[in-house]
Nucleic acid binder design. Structure first.
Lengths: 346, 346
DNA sequence: TAAAAAAATGTGTTCGAGCACATAATTAAA
DNA sequence: TTTAATTATGTGCTCGAACACATTTTTTTA
């Protein structure tokens, strides 16, 4: 109620010094006598002084430049929401003097990532936001940013080794457990389950780990869970491979697809007479259609939009207002059904 | 890349007028010749001028005061996260000159609501954020705010009648459909279902509506769904009433509890030998415990934290930066299981 | 002790928008 | 035409923090 907005001038008056001295104390720039310093600090503590961020910013009046390093969404549609999230955050921070340029790389070519990250560095940015798809190259970039004190944040997939710094994304092990819990609820105790890895990166193994640990902890008798890793370029006949897999494991009544490719399986199983439950990832249009149709039971949402939005926001608020970036933000693992999907798709 | 920050001074120079004139054009304060006005507008359009929000704000340097009108969380624990959400948003906007005072009312006493809303009005706020628990009284407040041009936003439950203005919350009908979809997945086709309303407000009927519509649309043969409305104060023996209900409807294998009181039922059913699936609402500690234990299958999250956070944020950004408040923001209907609950609880 | 060096403190300008006030240009009235 | 009234335009200060620079005070050195 009685909250007064104190300014540096107020502090100066209360402490009996000039605003210059107050300023030096606040930013410990030195050149202040011990007595003055103590007096000022005391006043600051007493009135709980909060600097006016607006004024601070106006004075600085710097334009901050961020580069984002993400896969080309034309090559993998998963990344469309990422772009939208970046754009949304950009829109919000532009009036505060933020500039962001997006650099795209080919998610299958580590060289392309490297090129773009070199480009980003050469442009002397204030911060970089990246999806660290390639392990070694990402570590490299991290190091270089550290050296040059460029702020950096990453999202989507986590890089071990390096400190857990400034990561935004999902806990993949827990994510696998969520999938397991869902399948457990919609199937009967005795059923067999398949895990399908389709053309995917190594970090997806964590999802399987979580998935299996759920059942291991819940049931005394080990449950029948079969893993099948499938790599194929578009040309090779995926259908055959999968049919073969299913024939070989006829007992399977639910399949966990560890990435966004659930639609491939669901489309194949559409016309089978035996109902096989599918739980997959990501709100691609293809997946959503099948979810609404009942061909996919659940999708787990990795929130690419929000990840990107938060990434930009964190960097912007750090540069503009000096806010600390949380060292790790593990986002909620959203469960999506035909009924609630419309609130998540973006 | 080449984005230059244009200022009013730049516009003035480009248009060959003084910054005073530019200012008058921008805020159409009149007193400007047609030629000057056109010239300035042309320049503004050409360079896509965006006023510097920081500077604008510094000049105004106004302290905005908001009052929030919410139920006393000590009387209904559902509201704790609401308070936290308000506090978080407040923390973020305080450095920009925002002041917010929380006013609490008794959610069972419309008079208490009225008193607090009168108090809020008498304090001449810039904005009010409210949970419109009482229909008529809330409409009143809406009207009065309109008259005095106090900005207002509401959350939690929607008020029909009045325009859908500035509402943040969940679509209750769709929420019921989500619950239905979940129960449908975890039970077999022939099972009977119960809907339980415990001590609840009329707007919960919408959840039932959505719930029933799901089954009506999905199955040709009408499904057996029994509704039971239960009002009782703490003294009366709830246990008996519910046991009676269950005995009378022995076929029931799943129950949909339309508010946060699922824990009451779940605790009663714990020791039954027949497993009855429960789907309920809200992440109260009591509910979470039972969810983790497997006594509740799913909870639907109404996001009270986020509702409140967004409510304050919208008001603040409107007052501070002139952003438009979305007329309606229907939040995602989060599905919570034992495995993902930890990411949502706050 | 005076002069020089170092340390402490104070002053004044800047950032961009907004607004009060001053001045200039135009039109209306005498 | 001259003066008054009206309208258009320009100038200068403010908001709070930051920082360069000026000034004062203290300490060190010759």
């Amino acid at each position: 109620m009685t909250e007064k907005k104190y300014t540096i001038k107020d502090i100066a008056k209360l402490a009996g010094v000039s605003k210059g001295t107050v300023d030096r104390v606040i930013h410990n720039r030195g050149r202040v006598s011990k007595e003055a310093c103590e007096k000022v600090n005391q006043v600051i503590a007493e009135i709980d002084y909060q600097p006016n961020l607006i004024a601070r910013n106006l004075k600085k009046n710097k334009i901050y430049r961020i580069y984002s390093l993400i896969p080309d969404a034309k090559l993998d549609h998963y990344w469309w929401p990422t772009i939208k999230g970046i754009d949304q955050a950009l829109k919000e921070f532009k009036p505060f003097g933020l500039i962001l340029e997006k650099l795209y790389f080919d998610p299958k070519e580590s060289k392309s990532f490297q090129e773009q990250s070199d480009l980003a560095l050469s442009l002397n940015p204030d911060a970089i936001l990246m999806a660290p798809v390639f392990h070694k190259e990402s570590l490299d970039l991290f190091e270089k940013c550290k050296e040059r004190s460029i702020v950096i944040a990453s999202f989507n997939n986590h890089i071990d080794k390096l400190g857990l710094e400034n990561f935004i994304g999902q806990d993949l092990i827990q994510s696998g457990r969520v999938a397991a819990g869902l399948i457990d609820k919609i199937t009967n105790k005795k059923c067999h389950i398949g895990i399908l890895h389709i053309n995917e990166e190594s970090h997806m193994k964590n999802k399987e780990k979580g998935f299996r640990s759920y059942f291991k902890e819940k049931y005394k008798k080990p449950k029948e869970i079969v893993t099948y890793s499938l790599t194929s370029n578009e040309n090779v006949n995926l259908k055959d491979k999968i049919s073969q897999f299913l024939k070989k494991n006829a007992g399977i009544s639910a399949i966990f697809v560890t990435n966004s490719k659930a639609y491939l399986i669901a489309n194949l199983l559409k016309n089978e007479n035996k109902k096989i439950m599918i739980v997959g990832y990501d709100l691609l249009n293809e997946n959503i259609k099948l979810l609404k149709n009942g061909d996919i039971e659940f999708l787990i949402h990795q929130k690419p939009y929000r990840q990107a939005y938060l990434g930009v926001s964190y960097l912007a608020e750090n540069l503009l207002f000096g806010k600390k970036i949380p060292s790790q933000n593990l986002l909620p693992i959203d469960i999506i059904t035909a009924e609630n999907v419309k609130y998540y798709a973006n």
